[in-house]
Design a protein around this nucleic acid. Sequence first.
RNA 1: GGGCAGUUACCAAAGUGGCCAACUGGGGCUGACUGUAACUCAGCUGUCUUUCGACUUCGGAGGUUCGAAUCCUUCACUGCCCA
Length: 315
Amino acid sequence: MEEPNCQLSTINCQLNKTLLVILGPTGVGKTKISLHLAEHFGCPIVSSDSRQFYRELKIGTAAPTEAQLQRVKHYFIGSHSIFDEYNAGQYEQDTIQLLDELFKKNDVVMLVGGSMMYIDAVCNGMDDIPTVDTETREFWQKQYAENGLEFIQNELKKLDPKHYEQVDIQNPKRIMHALEICSMTGKPYSDLRTGERKKRNFNIIKIGLNRPRPELYERINARVDVMMGEGLLKEAEQFYEHRQMNTLNTVGYKELYEYMDGNWTLDFAINMIKQDSRRYAKRQLTWFNRDKEIKWFVPDNEEEVLEYIRNIISK
RNA sequence: GGGCAGUUACCAAAGUGGCCAACUGGGGCUGACUGUAACUCAGCUGUCUUUCGACUUCGGAGGUUCGAAUCCUUCACUGCCCA
């Protein structure tokens, strides 16, 4: 009755393999519990944190420390430079390939992080859409900057009326991306969007971590102060001249650049980091709440989490 | 003690007789989001109601008026200035 997850290739069938996804909002305490779980299962950790990829952004992304990295084998922590081009599509490919390797030796592999779309990319896959080249990106950016939102809305209406009906028409980034794909492929973006969910050849257990909102916010606020104490300002300063780069359009950095540019006081910038982190946490929760496969826990109840996982795996 | 200014929703701040449940900003809440995603975007934010609508608000009390956040009296508190 159960449809095998891996009908494409029986050789690669890995039904006894499990990807343990640990997700939750920033600052909830994913790192701590995941290290314990990884040690318990003797499995490696694959990060799904789209900013901990960058080796230059250690403090501000609360990346695992050297000591923590010693304890458990991690992948995708500091694996890239902020000067690299990277995106969720590439991450999907890289991670699936990596998981294939890891599952040869491990029955359980953990995916830990809070980057919603990146987690989705691994669990459900993404459509086959080309990576946008620089010229195309700049072209549409220029169109938007010079002619405004209404103009690109109309362009989309012409090039992809179907998508025009579907996208958030107020959101310039979404419109521009659709236009980029239209002009790169010569086809409507909506033609490439299948909405299909890929079947993976491993089981997926999704563990969501959350706390009462006030507690979560307190932890976030406190962590920002810790980061400042650890030298976040200095870390950000090093890349001041590259502050326009997308990879530095990141909570914890962009606010400090406002300070360095003389627009904000340092205290104000620090408060904004806290606030932007809180907002990010909320957005993460909104996204995760849609996913009914997630089983939620309070991170302090490690035993409960462990028991839940054991129960599923032993079946 | 005297003079002046002020007290509006979680905060800041408009409104100075009817168009006011009250501009706006912040915060908060809710949501959208398949490649720049820690991005970007949207809605709500006095109470009750799904909507229509009903009800209670603009420091307290009293008054003027058909009608008050807006005018008057008084009390309380805050700020600045003079003592």
